[in-house]
């Protein structure tokens, strides 16, 4: 496709097209995560005995992961601040830090899953674990996608191109963060 699309540059709704699309993505993600959390909550409330299984989750790892994601989000935010000043290389460096935070999160998550599975806390042994693995797995896929996009945008920002995208991936990255707040509290904290 050669040439610039006029439609992409318009903003009849009063905001840039890319940002509008990111918010649309977030609005459509809410029912996806809600669709797995709402059934979990109603089952969890109906089954106090699932508390034993919830107690087997390692809350310290969960808390550390929360801090990791928050810190990663902070770097996405700082990258946005750098991009607003037009400092592409700095924005790229900070975006990469954010992406590495996501990767470390995934590694810790993988270790956690491994520990669960090796203790026979697999989805087959209880519907609680089914929900736990599905919800954190769904969230993990979003982290993975986010890391890929962060790195891709960092590569562009390094050359000073498409700096407005730094903010867009930031919004998505914070959303993934917010979803983790919910997962962390609902699965790890509330027993």
């Amino acid at each position: 496709m050669s040439g610039q699309i006029i439609a992409t540059g318009r903003s009849a709704a009063g905001m840039p097209t890319g940002k509008l699309a990111v918010w649309m993505v977030i609005a459509s993600e809410i029912p996806i995560f809600g669709g797995i959390l709402a059934p979990y909550l109603m089952h969890r409330i109906g089954h106090p005995d699932w508390g034993q299984m919830a107690a087997s989750l390692n809350v310290w790892i969960g808390t550390f992961n929360t801090g990791l994601l928050v810190t990663s989000s902070l770097f996405a935010m700082l990258a946005h601040a750098a991009a607003e000043r037009g400092d592409g290389p700095l924005a790229a460096a900070r975006l990469r830090l954010a992406a590495y935070g996501g990767l470390v999160f995934l590694c810790i998550k993988a270790y956690e899953w491994y520990a669960k599975i090796s203790h026979d806390h697999v989805p087959q042994t209880g519907t609680f674990y089914g929900y736990y693995f599905s919800a954190t797995g769904l969230h993990g896929i979003h982290i993975l996608a986010g890391v890929a996009i962060l790195l891709a945008i960092a590569a562009q920002a390094e050359k000073g191109k498409n700096l407005q995208r730094v903010e867009l991936i930031g919004i998505y990255w914070h959303f993934v963060d917010v979803v983790w707040f919910f997962l962390f509290h609902i699965f790890y904290i509330i027993r």
Partner: peptide
């Protein structure tokens, strides 16, 4: 559609992973 996407994940897990 979100709840059904979540539900599809759950159904696939029921079918193949013994949940």
């Amino acid at each position: 559609v979100g709840p059904l996407i979540a539900g599809s994940v759950m159904l696939v897990m029921d079918q193949n992973f013994g949940t």
